[in-house]
Each structure stands twice: as C-alpha cells, then as structure tokens.
Amino acid sequence: MQSTLAVCYEELGFENIPFSITPDTALFFPGGQHVGAYNQLHHACMNGTLAVLSGEIGLGKTLIVRCVIRSLPAQVRVAYLFNPLLEFSDLLREIHSEFGGQLPGRQDSLAVLHKDLVKIVLEGASRGERFVVIVDEAHRLNSEALEVLRLLSNLETERVKLISLVLVGQPELVTTLNLRAMRPLRERIGIWLQLTPLNREECAAYVRHRVARTHRDGNFHFTSTALWWLQRKTRGVPRRINLACERAVLLAYTRQMRSVNWDLAKMACKEFSKVWR
C-alpha cells in the first residue's frame, strides 16, 4: 500500500519525491556554493589534493560528496568512510578493504596494513588508477586516526600524489585541524571549503529547482511570500527547507491546492519551531 505522502505527491502531479531529506543525487542543486564545492572536490580527487569540506548539520555536505563520487571516472578507486568512530587500525583496514577488495585479518599489524596498502596503490598507479579516501563525519576522528590518514596521503611518486584525501565534517573539524598538534596535516591541505546557509534568492531557487525536477508538468508552485517565509524560518538550511516544504505540500494536498502560499508555509514551519531554535 502506498504511503499517504506518496499518494499526495502523485495526485499533485509529482513523478518523484521532491523534498526527501535523504541525499538524492538526482536533485543536486546546481547553484552557488554547492557547485563551487562540487567542482573543487572533484578537482581534489583527480589531482591528489588534500581537501576539507565543513559546514553545520543539514547544509548538504554528504549530497555534494556523493555527487562527486558518482562523477569520477572508472579508473578512480574510492574508499568512502562514514564511520569515523572506528579505531585507527580498523579505519586502515576499511581503506584496505575498499582498495584491495577484501577485509584484512585483525592479526595484521598496522605496519603490515600500511605496507600492503602502499603495494596496492603503487600497482594500481602503474595501471593508471587513482585513489581517493573520503571520510564523512570527520569531526569525530581522533588525533591518531588523523595522523594515520596524513601518513597515507604522503604517498607519492616524483610527479604526482597517489592518494587524495577529503575530510568532510561539522565546524568542529576545523577547530581540531587548527590545533598546534595538527600542523603537519593542516599545512598539506590544498582546498578549504565551508558551506553556509542559503540566502533568500538561493532558497527560492533551491525549492523551485526541486519542484521543476520532479513535477510532471510544472503546474505546482510556491508563492514568493511562501519562499520568503521558508528561508526566514529555516534559516536557509536545506534539510530544514526539505522538511518544511514536504509538510507544506501535504497541507496543500489536504486543501486541494496546486500551490503553497504564505499561510501554508507558516503552518508547516510552525510544526518545527520548537526543534529549530
């Protein structure tokens, strides 16, 4: 049985869900800072650069990273890690597993794991392959794990870096990297990116983009006052915008309306007011 929300979207003319909070790469917003971050991270992955992407919760960091991963050519092998709470030895095993195709035994020492990884990367480089390590939620990494990643990113030939490292996390990541003990890693960072909330124009373009990409005939819209209110109450955070818009669309459906006006936007945002303080 279809969910109430799925029926709502279908009857309003939507072919796909426009405001899901999951990182749907098909709905990537091709505007402003998101495109800039995408382009720079793609460059980092292709050129052995160490890059950092930071931003508050819900600004779209993971979506950007997944779009980058999907766009990389076949000869680029990616280790995408999203459980940084692992011990540094387990973190190295995960990278080994992604690059080598199998998870090494726990009896292997850190030195053996590192040696095997170097061998895998060097052999791959001889075939024209590139290697990328992307760590999501990197603000949770401890200093030992960061040091292991730094040493791994040192791997290079006379001409090129063999492993690109991308660290993605909340602002606490930048705080950690600015510590004196992190200087060896910090000085290797070639790209620093920080996402900020969407302004009024960007918020309007973001909502309209998602409707345009998912609606069958474009016969559904958000009024300018609704968009203004959404940006004000969500403070331009895409995840909040999605939650509020999803609720507003459902309210429009219950009223048999083909648009979201200021009243509906206000009611939708009010339901989240206690959470968004």
Rank of each mutant, 00 (worst) to 15 (best):
L230Y: 03
G32M: 08
A145R: 04
S259P: 00
C269N: 11
G60D: 11
N16K: 15
E201A: 12
W229F: 11
Y253E: 06
S224I: 13
R213A: 15
K115T: 03
S54I: 12
R127T: 12
G31S: 11
H209M: 08
C245Y: 07
G128Q: 03
N47A: 02
E123G: 03
Y38T: 04
R70A: 14
P104I: 15
L110Q: 10
L167K: 01
G100Q: 09
V112M: 12
S126H: 12
L198Q: 07
A44D: 04
K61D: 00
F131G: 10
A26I: 05
A265S: 14
W229K: 08
T25N: 05
A44H: 03
S273L: 10
R210I: 09
N219R: 13
C269K: 06
L53A: 03
G31I: 09
L53F: 00
S273Q: 13
F99C: 04
A204P: 06
D90R: 08
L193F: 09
P238W: 14
N219D: 14
V132I: 11
L12M: 05
E147Q: 06
K266G: 00
L5F: 15
F19L: 00
K233I: 01
D136E: 10
T49K: 11
N83Q: 14
R277W: 04
L141E: 03
N142L: 04
M182K: 06
G58N: 01
E201P: 00
F272N: 00
E144D: 12
V76G: 05
G128V: 13
L193V: 10
A252R: 03
A226M: 02
H139Q: 15
R232C: 03
P23N: 07
L149I: 09
